[in-house]
Amino acid sequence: MPEIRTERLVLRQWRESDLRPWAAMNADREVREHFDGVLTREQSEASAARFRAAIEQRGWGWWAVEVRETGEFIGFTGLDPVDEDMPFTGVEAGWRLARSSWGHGFATEAALAVLAFGFETLALPEILAVTTAGNLRSQAVMRRIGMTRDPADDFDDPTVPEGPLRRSVVYRIRAGLRAPAGP
C-alpha cells in the first residue's frame, strides 16, 4: 500500500510502534466521549490488527496518521465499508485523533486526502460519514470537507445501547462535489 502524503501528514499502514499511543488515545475519556466507553490495551491492539489486515487485503482502510515533520503517530483516518447492521450501505470516511492534535486542522487535512483517494483511486460515487448527534467537532469537519446532512438520514445506531450516544447523523458527499483543498 502506498502512503498518502499531505502537506503535513502521512497516512500509512500501521506499525508496532503505533500500538502504545493508539492504546493511550483509546483510554482517554475525552477522545472516546462519543463512543461507548474507553478501550483496554488489548482491545486497542486488536483493532489495530484488524485495521492492518484490512489494508493488506484491500489496499485501503483505516490508516495510521503521523505528522510528517516529526513522525509522531496522532491517530487514524480512512475509509471502510459500512457495517452490515446499519440502515444504509456505502463506504464511510472517518477519523480519530489524539487530543493533543485537536485544533490544528489535521482531521480536515486527513479527511480531504481520504476523499481524494476514495473518489480518484477507488472511483467511489459517494462517501459518507457517521457520528453521534452530539459530536459537533466531527460534524464540523464533515461540513468543512464539503459533506452535507439530510436529517431524514438520522438514525438510532443498532450497535449502541440505549442512551444519548445512540442517535446518529449521516453526512454525505458525491463524487465531483469537492470541498476546497486545505484545512
Rank of each mutant, 00 (worst) to 15 (best):
A110G: 01
P125E: 14
L177A: 14
G182R: 10
L115R: 03
P164S: 15
T121V: 15
D80H: 13
E45A: 10
S44D: 05
G176K: 02
W60N: 00
L19A: 09
P81R: 08
W14T: 11
A64M: 05
T89S: 14
D156S: 11
F35P: 00
T77I: 10
S44Y: 12
P87D: 09
A27T: 08
E7C: 04
T159N: 08
A98F: 10
L19Y: 10
S17M: 02
V31Y: 11
R29F: 10
W22M: 14
M86F: 15
G94M: 08
A181F: 08
R29L: 11
G134W: 08
G182V: 08
V67T: 10
T148F: 08
P2A: 09
E92P: 01
Y171L: 03
H104C: 02
D36M: 07
H34Q: 06
S100M: 03
G134L: 11
A54Y: 12
T108Q: 01
A24Y: 08
L122M: 07
L128W: 07
R149F: 13
F76V: 05
V130K: 05
R99D: 09
P81L: 12
D18H: 09
A133S: 13
H34A: 06
A27F: 12
F73I: 07
T131S: 15
A46H: 12
E66H: 04
A64G: 05
A27N: 05
L124Y: 12
E120H: 11
D83V: 07
R68N: 03
Q57H: 04
M1F: 13
T131M: 08
P161R: 01
A179Q: 04
E162D: 14
A24N: 03
W60C: 00
D80Q: 14
F35K: 00
A48V: 10
Y171T: 08
R96A: 11
A53W: 09
E66Q: 05
G75Q: 00
F155N: 04
F35L: 10
E92N: 03
G75V: 05
A53P: 00
V10G: 02
R58M: 03
E42S: 13
L9M: 06
V114I: 14
T70C: 02
V31W: 12
A133P: 05
S101T: 06
D83K: 00
A48K: 01
V38L: 02
D28Q: 05
R58Y: 14
E30Y: 11
A123W: 06
A46G: 10
L97N: 01
F106S: 00
E3Y: 10
R20W: 07
D154N: 12
G94Q: 07
A24K: 03
G163K: 01
A23K: 01
P158G: 03
V169D: 09
W22S: 13
R8D: 04
A175V: 13
E56I: 07
P87T: 13
R137W: 14
G94N: 06
L177G: 04
R174A: 15
A64Y: 12
F106G: 00
L39C: 04
W102T: 03
T108F: 10
D153K: 02
R8L: 08
N26G: 07
P158Y: 12
G90P: 03
V160Q: 08
T40L: 05
A48F: 10
V114K: 00
I55L: 14
A98T: 09
E69F: 11
M1S: 11
F76A: 03
A140T: 15
D83L: 07
E109F: 08
R15F: 12
A64K: 00
L165S: 08
M142V: 10
A53S: 04
F88Q: 02
D18C: 06
Q57T: 11
D153N: 05
